[in-house]
């Protein structure tokens, strides 16, 4: 190596080196080679947690759509169920007619009258409207026994042929306990009727005494003095 020749650089080399020493030039180069920093080891866990929580958030329009679908399904199923469902009767009120085989031969009752019970009774509107019941067995015709009513003895009342309940005479001997005030004054236009209806006998008697005394006499009350011996 010692024997190898040496070469002289160009005279402008130093100037070029000095140019590179310029601050802006250095800044351009060094800014591309800035050191890197290491983030925390838990950074990825935080990102995963954030990503998972973001996935759980359902947009509001999706929630609304799901709710509408649910409501529609419930309504549709309700309508279909109502359509398919037969009217519900209370079976206790219906007569169940079954084919019963009777081992003994029973004679049919002889009809006395033309009108049988079945013919007399009008068909029920309720049963015909709701569900017709097909009778598999013919109803037996039953004769209705005639029940004789007992003879009642009604006492005969003889009424006075001259009696007229609408006729009222002032000359009647029986005095009425009713009071009738009739006024032609404007302020007391309504006719007021006072009656003793519902009052006890004692009250009626005291009222009669008071009425007779208050109109023309002065009532004096004496206090009972106790006499001491």
């Amino acid at each position: 190596m010692k024997n190898l020749p040496q070469h002289t650089p160009k005279s402008t080399s130093w100037d070029k080196i000095l140019q590179q020493q310029d601050f802006d030039t250095q800044l351009e180069k060094v800014s591309l080679d800035l050191p890197h920093f290491e983030p925390s080891s838990k950074a990825w866990e935080g990102i995963v947690t954030e990503l998972d929580s973001e996935k759980r958030i359902v947009p509001i329009w999706k929630k609304l759509a799901a709710a509408m679908v649910l409501v529609f399904t419930i309504a549709l199923s309700w309508v279909l169920l109502e359509k398919d469902q037969e009217p519900n009767f209370e079976t206790d009120l219906l007569t169940q007619i079954r084919d019963i085989s009777i081992p003994i031969q029973v004679e049919k009752p002889i009809l006395e009258g033309k009108e049988s019970f079945a013919e007399m009774s009008e068909p029920s509107t309720l049963t015909t409207e709701t569900k017709p019941i097909e009778s598999k067995q013919e109803l037996a015709e039953v004769s209705i026994p005639i029940i004789a009513l007992p003879n009642l003895e009604i006492p005969q009342v003889n009424l006075d042929p001259t009696y007229n309940p609408n006729q009222f005479t002032a000359s009647s001997e029986n005095k009425s306990l009713h009071e009738v005030d009739i006024s032609w004054d404007k302020g007391r236009s309504k006719m007021r009727v006072k009656t003793a209806f519902g009052k006890s006998q004692e009250e009626l008697q005291s009222n009669r005494k008071y009425q007779t005394s208050s109109s023309k006499t002065i009532q004096i009350k004496f206090k009972n003095k106790s006499i001491t011996s």
Binding site: H36, E38, P39, A43, G46
Partner: peptide
């Protein structure tokens, strides 16, 4: 890419906690 991202955030903010928030 984490070093690139964190370094940029840390150099702009000069705060480790804020840089981690930016990274996330």
């Amino acid at each position: 890419t984490k070093r690139m991202v964190y370094s940029l955030a840390f150099r702009m903010l000069d705060d480790e906690d804020m840089a981690h928030d930016v990274l996330q």
